[in-house]
Design a protein around this nucleic acid. Structure first.
Length: 485
RNA sequence: GGCGCAUUCGUCUAGGGGUUUAGGACGCCGCCCUCUCAAGGCGGAGAUCACGGGUUCGAAUCCCGUAUGCGCUACCA
């Protein structure tokens, strides 16, 4: 990417993930966390978790837990925190006071109603909305009058009205803003809580953050942050604004796009290692062909230089594919272990719990290559467990007439009855010649047996399936098929 | 409306002036394998590199403009 600073910071890398608990974390949030984590791990730095809970009204119950659950699930372990901004109010108030004392900020008594009215008016006149600075130069007499009316003021920053503010973005190069487009933004709200702008700067400084990697949506407010750093006499950290992740409609990812919360991906049967790999590739790439990378490889190769500047549309089909790759790569033991919760939860209630572990171990190899998510496993294996087969008799009669089917089924029944050694090889050695004897194509004959034995037209290979099901169950099901005809 | 950022196949991306008839992946289509479904193998369609001007012997790559998209424009983060 253009304009990357060649200078590596001598100080140890310290980065943070600073979500607000105003909702459950979605892929976009988590991708930001992931890049911060990767940057920290690649550089042997520190990854800090900081909860920005300064919006009391919008705080969502359980969001903080969901954030930590999501991070833990993906293996994004943090070295410090979680810090809570709500427990650090003193620091912000102290800094706000200092700025007021130094005449770099001021008390504003304007009511929300007045501000709203002003905004409406500005919009109507197609003027840029922004605070009109009415309280910026209040006389002490005017202030006293306001105090009498018991209006709790907010603290606003005195933005410069002319000149420019610029900064260097690690990904995008130099960015310049006209100060005239900035208004006097609020630092401290009337409830005593800081706004994002203040709390963010104070904490990043106090926590000695060296690099701020955050979503692109913050780019526009960065000049405010730079100005604040200057006002406080602090050195700003290095900045990099990451490309956003968009929904299929190309809008900023939000709850509206469904299943956005990271924990839902877990519940939908995605593997954390698969999602990790997939997310890493949303905005970062190793080269022109490598897509499947382990966590260690990604950590090893991760670099800011290879982060793209373009927003990425989240592509679920590709995630599904990649998740399938990771499922197939699981050891049988792991696959069983991870599928178990899904089976316990989604198999019909009539199936006895706990599930028979030995039986399960024989079933699972037959579906591992066929599942894109763990959540599909119960669906894929259901016919192994249920006793009464419910399927439409029309599935049996593919290309065959009733008489032909009956004949095929009955001869099969007779031959299989005599089979003592019930396994894949012996089943095949009997049934394959039988197809010829019946003058049926294998596809047709095996298809008939498949429906009879599994109740469906698509299943794992027939003989292996029959072996696992066992003689008793297969015989019963074949007889049932005869009855159905 | 103002400001900012971005713009390579439908999607994720490679590419950093000549190595490009623009490479890979998902998805899609076809063939092979095959008892079905997957998986796998092979192949195909799919991008006038948003558009218009420059700069240059040469531009997807550098510059400018336009368009489009997105973001910000709250006592939200």
């Amino acid at each position: 990417m253009p304009g990357l600073e060649p200078t590596l910071p001598e100080a140890k890398v310290r980065v943070r993930f600073a979500p607000s608990p105003t909702g459950y974390p979605h892929l976009g949030n988590i991708r930001t966390a992931l890049f911060n984590w990767l940057f920290a791990r690649h550089n042997g730095g520190t990854f800090i978790l900081r909860i920005e809970d300064t919006d009391v009204a919008r705080t969502v119950q359980g969001a903080t837990e969901a954030i930590m659950d999501g991070l833990r699930w993906l293996g994004l372990d943090w070295n410090e925190g979680p810090y809570f901004q709500s427990q650090r109010l003193d620091s912000y108030r102290r800094m706000a006071d200092q700025l007021v004392r130094e005449d770099k900020a001021y008390l504003c008594y304007c009511s929300p109603q007045r501000l709203e009215g002003m905004r409406q008016e500005q919009m109507k006149r197609k003027q840029p909305p922004g605070y009109d600075r009415q309280c910026r130069n209040l006389t002490s007499k005017e202030k006293a009058e306001m105090e009498v009316h018991c209006i709790t003021p907010v603290v606003r920053f005195k933005s410069p009205t002319e000149g420019q503010t610029s900064f260097h973005d690690l990904l995008r190069g130099n960015i310049v803003f006209e100060n005239s487009t900035l208004d006097d933004f609020i630092l401290l709200k009337s409830d005593g809580y800081p706004t994002y702008h203040l709390a963010n700067i104070v904490d990043d400084h106090l926590m000695e953050i060296t690099h701020v990697l955050r979503a692109d949506e913050w780019l526009s407010s960065t000049p405010r942050h730079v100005l604040l750093y200057q006002a406080l006499g602090w050195q700003p950290p290095q900045l990099a604004h990451l490309p956003m992740i968009l929904g299929p409609d190309k809008a900023k990812l939000s709850k509206r796009h469904g299943a956005a919360a990271i924990t839902e991906y877990r519940d939908q049967g995605y593997l954390p290692e698969g999602l990790f790999n997939f997310l890493a590739l949303l905005g970062w790439s190793l080269d022109d062909k490598t897509e499947l990378l382990s966590k260690q490889e990604i950590v090893k190769h991760f670099s800011l230089e290879r982060i793209s500047t373009t927003a990425a549309v989240f592509n679920r089909e590709k995630l599904d594919w990649m998740n399938g790759v990771y499922i197939r790569g699981l050891s049988m033991e792991e696959f069983c272990r991870r599928s178990l919760p899904f089976l316990e939860k989604d198999l019909p209630t009539e199936v006895k719990r706990p599930l028979d572990a030995d039986y399960l171990r024989r079933i699972m190899p037959l579906v591992q290559g066929r599942a894109k998510t763990l959540a599909e496993v119960p669906q894929l294996t259901e016919f192994f467990f249920v006793d009464n087969m419910e399927y439409d008799a029309s599935l049996l009669s593919g290309k065959l007439g009733r008489e032909e089917m009956l004949k095929a089924l009955q001869i099969s029944l007779a031959k299989l009855e005599a089979l003592s050694n019930w396994n894949t090889a012996s089943l095949e050695s009997i049934l394959r010649p039988l197809a010829e004897e019946l003058e049926l194509k294998t596809g047709v004959f095996f298809g008939l047996l498949r429906v009879a034995v599994t109740g469906r037209t698509a299943s794992p290979p027939l003989f292996e399936t029959m072996e696992v099901l066992g003689k008793e169950r297969c015989m019963a099901r074949l007889k049932l098929a005869v009855d159905k005809l």
